[in-house]
Write a protein that binds this DNA or RNA. Structure first.
Length: 992
RNA sequence: GCCCCGGUGGUGGAAUUGGUAGACACGCAGGACUUAAAAUCCUGUGUCUUCGCGGACGUACGGGUUCAAGUCCCGUCUGGGGUACCA
């Protein structure tokens, strides 16, 4: 029998599905192991070869752990709310639910074909009401909680109300407030609190709730009636449609993730994640230690508070800068400066964040006309406004020390403001000196101190004068939680008398209503407002009309897999106590700061309220590398300069021109091929006076490029021209153009290649389906792993695929090849496995392989394990080994990687149960011991020859033998070695 | 700018703790089987030099540490990713 992968693979896929081979059991004697892949969004394009990379790796681990005696949870589901489906719905009017279902079906089909060992009984979809009921439930818990700084955890809001009732509230210095929305709340007593009306109470509590309605800046696009993410904006206008975008303060639901900033930071130390990923999170959280410091405004009794990490440089302050959005801007502006300031503020406010970034070198600002007093010298310090100061960070105001901060430095240089040196060591003519090193000068009581000590002393002085307080600031912002979109979880809130109320648990799920269109209303309300007339709480009160963001459902899904169908709780505590953390989490690094922060935040929150026992969602995390596609581009010429072109030949054209021909024509400045084309198309026109020139004005001489569907490009970069032409004509309906092709002299057409991100728009997507069709899924699995280290990005090419496919065939022949008659292969061969005792050599091959494979899996080095399998099969083939005692353990080792062929051969060996139930073989060191050691002998570190010596020899004995060797004598050339180094069982080095 | 990860044959990559650089695979060249092809098998394949034995060079570049460096240290170049006026 030949290796018929098609039949084998579909049979075993059916077998696994029917027998629920990979269903996880909730409990039992075995230790548990939870392997999770990052939640996929089921896009319409289906899977390309990059997606399964991580799934194959996690599947190998899952299968391996089962062999090792673990109870493995390896689930899969879909993050099925999201923008692409909504966009498609807007264009076609089709309900996103339908497209989502179709996409999921396609995903599932592709996933099944690759033979993953998922427990499909636990599948979840975030867009199912049975699922988002619990997303809404968690939202309500967060809404009904506040962060208690003294216990350092989230607590029910009732405990805060109790505090208010008994002690009242002092002020923001009360230390009760958390997060960065630190509004100045009026103090009140317990009695006053009790007397407040419901609206007032609600407003006050909003400042404490972990899910709260707050004001934050967003990128608002009036024409689209929606808020845009930063990456939906290109060059200051919306990517879609090109409409203007403005920064707008909007009332929005937010999550007080900032309350958890310190814990999110500290928790990183307990995690086995890559250092780079942890570093990304640390940077994102952005903890900085410093102090607040108040400057008294010279006129009136106002104060400006700043945050600084460099209080040591306080004597170097030469001006104070406010963000354009700062609340004191208006009142501090003097009459003389009013017009200028107003103009500047209006313009700065309307620049999107992106725009401000784009003009990083353009320094803008304006003087208010007012001054503050320097807190220590009493000198007058001017107040400026500059958009390099961000309203959202710190206090929205900075004390500018141009000598020791590069941004202040550029600002000061640009506006001719003084630069006062207070830390010695820099060259202020050229640049600011930002380093936290050196001695303080020109700084009164700080003079002579090192920066570190000066910071401490300055804070102490500031605190003593009551001007501020040492504090910690975080870069992390609260997360905006509302989206002006349709296809997301409804936020379970309704409004009564302008007060937001959370739904009761028994009212969940709040089901997404049907709407006539998936667009915002005419007056800019979110799409859900279209349903408002009939969609009301108790038939009277409006629901919240924004929906949850994409990260809501994915912030807790790992818990739902533990108890996927529970209707009465998001996950039974008994089950979450059993499954605990994810032991291995695999996914792309693009989630480093988004998803992975939010899921950690929700996990900590749920732990605080006692719903789960763990503090971090995933113990170990691996980022898979990206698989890049190789795009193909044809050169086209669509613009040349022509002179004296007869009118009747005036026509637009596009010429596809092969790579080398183009080079040839351009380098020789030869445009005759263009006139040839004109002559061909207008045979009756006289072109004798016409002259063509490459367009030297345009960047590439008028030569452009067009992406080609890579399916029609041969490995040698030539086009399958007929296929390409058919596709091209379909894609670009350019019947009104002259379309021509210029080939190489040999008639071929050569394209340019480029390695870049795999994407539909670049026509370079490769789906796993073709590979699976041609070589089988086991080959696909092996090949994706064989490409290189999991974490490394690499371009997809199928050059080596015959190698791994050949390996599987070779493995098959160990079981099926007739031993007599050599290795010719062809013809009928029968299953032929012997029960003979294996030789010492065969046992060595096997155990060496077991050892290496075990080590490789444990360190997630899948590419090397495949090489090791190849070496093993090569050696067994050379030894003509068809012995059960060798092949059986080998199959178990291989089955995580190539499960179908392993199952099939396992069955042929006479087993009735799935190979996944077999125990992973242990290796026996005794088989690996060598009698001899091959010593490389080197002279001054350069290896000259090797010497095979008995392993039992001691180092001095080895040295004696090497010294006596005649080759040694030759290389020593009569000289006595200065030193001889013998590393036992490794190497000998003669130093001359 | 800052942070992170890389740079090894024609190609993907291996070398796990400093100890024979290039395992394994592709590609290429030659050969066997075949009417032919496919499939399969065998041999060779870092570069330069040599008829050959051999010799020299070689892990982006320049230094250093070491008996010994792809691996450790310093500097430079370069590719990729992340991030961004965060005070």
């Amino acid at each position: 029998m030949e290796y018929n992968f098609k039949e084998i693979e579909s049979n075993w896929q059916k077998y696994w599905a029917t027998n629920k081979t990979f269903a996880a059991k909730d409990g039992g004697d075995k230790p548990k192991y939870y392997v999770l892949d990052m939640f996929p969004y089921p896009s319409g394009a289906g899977l390309h070869v990059g997606h399964p990379l991580g799934y194959i790796a996690s599947d190998i681990v899952a299968r391996y752990k089962r062999h090792k005696g673990f109870n493995v949870l390896h689930p899969m589901g879909y993050d099925s709310f999201g923008l692409p489906a909504e966009q498609y719905a807007i264009q076609t009017g089709q309900h996103p639910k339908i497209t989502t279902e179709q996409n999921i079906a396609r995903y599932r089909e592709q996933l099944d074909k690759i033979g993953f060992s998922f427990d499909w009984d636990r599948e979840v979809r975030t867009s199912n009401p049975e699922y988002y009921k619990w997303t809404q439930w968690i939202f309500i818990q967060i809404f009904n909680s506040w962060y208690n700084k003294s216990t350092n955890k989230a607590e029910p809001i009732e405990t805060l109300i109790k505090v208010f009732e008994t002690k009242g509230f002092n002020s923001k210095l009360d230390d009760t407030l958390t997060g960065d929305i630190e509004k100045d709340l009026e103090p009140f007593t317990g009695e006053e609190w009790k007397a407040f009306d419901e609206k007032k109470k609600s407003d006050i509590l909003m400042n404490f709730r972990l899910a709260y309605l707050g004001e934050s800046f967003v990128n608002w696009c009036p024409q689209l009636g929606t808020v845009l993410a930063n990456d939906e904006i290109k060059d200051g206008v919306s990517e879609r449609g090109g409409y203007p975008v403005e920064r707008k303060l909007m009332k929005q639901w937010s999550m007080r993730i900032t309350a958890y900033a310190q814990r999110l930071l500290d928790g990183l130390d307990t995690l086995d994640w890559t250092e780079s990923l942890k570093e990304a999170q640390r940077n994102w959280i952005g903890r900085s230690e410093g102090t607040s410091l108040k400057f008294k405004v010279s006129q009136g009794d106002k104060w400006i508070e700043v945050f600084t990490t460099r209080p040591d440089t306080v004597f170097g302050v030469s001006f104070v800068t406010l963000a354009p959005e700062h609340e004191l801007v208006e009142s501090l502006t003097t009459a003389d400066n009013k017009a200028a300031v107003e103009a500047y503020v209006t313009q700065a406010k309307n620049r999107s964040e992106r725009e401000r970034q784009a003009d990083i070198n353009k320094i803008t600002g304006v003087f208010t006309g007012s001054y503050v007093e320097h807190p220590f010298t009493g000198k007058q310090v001017p107040i400026w406004i500059g958009d390099y100061v961000l309203a959202g960070y710190g206090t929205g105001a900075v004390m500018a020390v141009p000598a020791h901060d590069s941004r202040d430095y550029s600002f000061a240089k640009h506006f001719g403001l003084p630069i006062l040196e207070v830390v010695a060591g820099g060259d202020l003519e050229k640049e600011s000196y930002d380093a936290k090193e050196g001695k303080l000068i020109n700084s009164d009581f700080l003079n002579g101190l090192e920066v570190k000590d000066a910071i401490k002393k300055a804070i102490a002085e500031i605190e003593a004068k009551g001007l501020g307080k040492g504090k910690v600031n975080f870069r992390l912002r609260d997360a905006v939680f509302g989206r002006q979109r349709y296809w997301g979880e409804p936020i379970p809130v309704y409004y009564k008398n302008d007060i937001p109320y959370a739904l009761n648990e028994n009212e969940l799920p709040l089901v997404l209503p049907e709407v006539d269109k998936y667009l915002p209303t005419e007056d800019g309300e979110p799409p859900l407002a279209r349903a408002a007339s009939s969609w009301k709480h108790e038939g009277k009160y409006d629901y919240e009309h924004s929906t949850m963001p994409g990260w809501a459902g994915s912030s807790w899904y790992f818990l739902r897999y533990m108890d996927a169908h529970n209707g009465s709780v998001f996950a039974d505590k008994k089950l979450s106590d059993y499954w605990q953390q994810v032991d291995l989490y695999i996914g792309g690094s693009e989630h480093a700061t988004g998803h992975l922060l939010y899921v950690r935040f929700w996990t900590k929150f749920l732990k605080d309220l006692g719903y789960i026992a763990i503090d971090e969602p995933a113990k170990k995390l691996i980022n898979q590398g990206m698989i890049q596609g190789t795009s193909a581009y044809t050169n086209i010429i669509s613009k040349v300069n022509y002179f004296d072109l007869p009118n009747e030949a005036n026509s637009n054209f596009v010429i596809y021109i092969s790579k080398n021909k183009l080079k040839e024509f351009v380098s020789s400045n030869d445009t005759s091929f263009i006139s040839d084309i004109y002559k061909k198309h207008f045979p009756n026109v006289d072109f004798s006076k016409t002259r063509f020139e490459f367009d030297k004005e345009s960047p590439n001489n008028g030569i452009g490029k067009r992406a080609v569907l890579v399916d029609y490009v041969n490995p040698n970069d030539t086009l399958q021209f007929d296929n390409f032409k058919k596709w091209r004509d379909l894609m670009f309906r350019e019947s009104n153009l002259i379309v021509e092709y210029v080939f190489e002299n040999d008639g071929s057409f050569i394209v340019d290649r480029e390695v870049e991100k795999m994407s539909k728009s670049k026509w370079n997507v490769v789906t796993p389906d073709d590979i699976a069709e041609k070589f089988g899924s086991d080959t696909l699995r092996l090949y994706e792993m064989f490409l290189g280290p999991l974490e490394q990005s690499k371009p997809w090419n199928t050059n080596g695929i015959t190698g791994v496919h050949g390996f599987l065939k070779k493995l098959w022949r160990l079981f099926y090849s007739p031993l007599q008659g050599g290795a010719q292969g062809a013809g009928d061969v029968a299953f032929n496995v012997s029960n003979d005792e294996p030789t010492k050599g065969e046992l060595k091959t096997l155990h060496k392989t077991i050892k290496k494979i075990t080590e490789d899996i444990e360190r997630f080095s899948f590419n090397t394990s495949i090489s090791n399998f190849m070496i093993c099969v090569n050696e067994l083939t050379d030894a003509k080994c068809n012995k059960r005692a060798i092949l059986e353990p080998l199959l178990i080792c291989l089955s995580p990687y190539a499960p179908h062929i392993a199952e099939e051969l396992w069955k042929q060996l006479g087993h009735n149960e799935s190979i996944s139930t077999a125990a992973f073989p242990d290796f026996n060191e005794a088989y690996l011991v060598d009698d001899n050691v091959n010593y490389p002998v080197s002279f001054n570190g350069k290896v000259k020859f090797t010497l095979e010596l008995a392993a039992t020899l001691t180092a001095p004995e080895v040295e004696a033998i090497v010294r006596a060797n005649e080759q040694t004598t030759k290389y020593l050339d009569g000289k006595e070695p200065k030193k001889v180094i013998v590393v036992h069982k490794k190497i000998v080095n003669m130093v001359m």
